[in-house]
Amino acid sequence: MWNKDLTRPAARSSFTCMTAAATRPSETLLHIGGEMLLPLPEGALWWAAERVLVVSDLHLEKGSAYAARGQMLPPYDTAATLDVVERLCAALSPRTVISLGDSFHDRAAELRLPAPYAARIQALTGAHDWVWVEGNHDPDPPAHLGGRAAKSLRIGHLVFRHEPTGEAGEIAGHLHPAAKVKGRGRMVRRRCFASDGARLVMPAMGALTGGLNVLDAAFAPLFPEGLMAFALGGERVFAVSAKSLVPDVANGARWRL
């Protein structure tokens, strides 16, 4: 099955003042590629040893993309998503921020991006070593927003890319994992991290992004021996036992990435 050393309790002396909420009663640490990584309830990943913050699938300007096609969504998704990223950067002071692909919802997003939002992005990229990893929605991040582009990024034993391949030590996004859990007579569905101790798929952070159930067939080739889900809660991330996971009800239309 999965790596038995997948999670460990947090060492408070090592992580105090290094997480977005140091007063949380407990934290779940993931052991991937020999490194200890902290999944945050905001959906980001914190690698304290290297001061690296990883965010994935921001899908900035998704609302305006839908509005352009006549489906009117509230036009506040970019502001809401940037609020979360800014808050994490202020709390953690990362040296490097890796945006793990699909940072923008489409190639025309920069043309719809309001100037105040562009200025906020430029402030973030100017304050950190910001890496835009290539995604399937945004192969060419807007150059004027700062940061540097990469198809993938290797740091030590870890590799960061958008679309997961199943490589050991891989941190990827793209699939927008979500866990549906049955417990105490009700169903709860939450965005989640998916991992088997050797690789990790991150949840989408975008305010208007959906999620793909971790029991979907798309995850099976990546985790042939099974996976564990780590669901986002209001104050912490919760490990979910495999027996608690339930599939979504089939409705004849599969969620699209």
Rank of each mutant, 00 (worst) to 15 (best):
W46R: 09
A48E: 09
A49L: 07
E50P: 02
V52Q: 08
V54N: 09
S56M: 05
S56C: 13
D57M: 11
L58G: 07
L58Q: 07
H59I: 00
H59P: 02
E61Q: 13
K62R: 12
G63T: 09
G70E: 07
D77P: 02
T78G: 10
T81M: 02
L82Q: 02
V84E: 02
V84M: 04
V85A: 03
V85H: 02
E86T: 08
R87K: 12
L88Y: 09
C89S: 08
A90H: 14
A90E: 15
A91H: 01
S93V: 00
S93D: 14
P94L: 15
R95M: 04
V97K: 00
S99D: 06
S99Q: 10
S99G: 13
G101L: 04
G101E: 08
G101T: 08
D102N: 05
S103T: 15
F104H: 05
F104P: 08
H105K: 12
D106V: 05
D106Q: 07
A108R: 07
A109E: 11
L111F: 10
R112D: 03
L113Q: 13
L113D: 14
P114H: 12
P116W: 06
Y117F: 11
A118D: 01
A118E: 03
A118C: 03
A119K: 15
A119S: 15
A123P: 04
A123M: 08
L124N: 02
L124S: 01
T125C: 01
A127Q: 00
H128C: 00
H128Y: 01
W130A: 00
W130E: 02
V131D: 00
E134M: 07
G135F: 10
G135N: 08
N136M: 03
H137R: 14
D138M: 13
D140E: 10
D140S: 14
P141L: 02
P141S: 11
P142M: 04
A143P: 09
H144I: 02
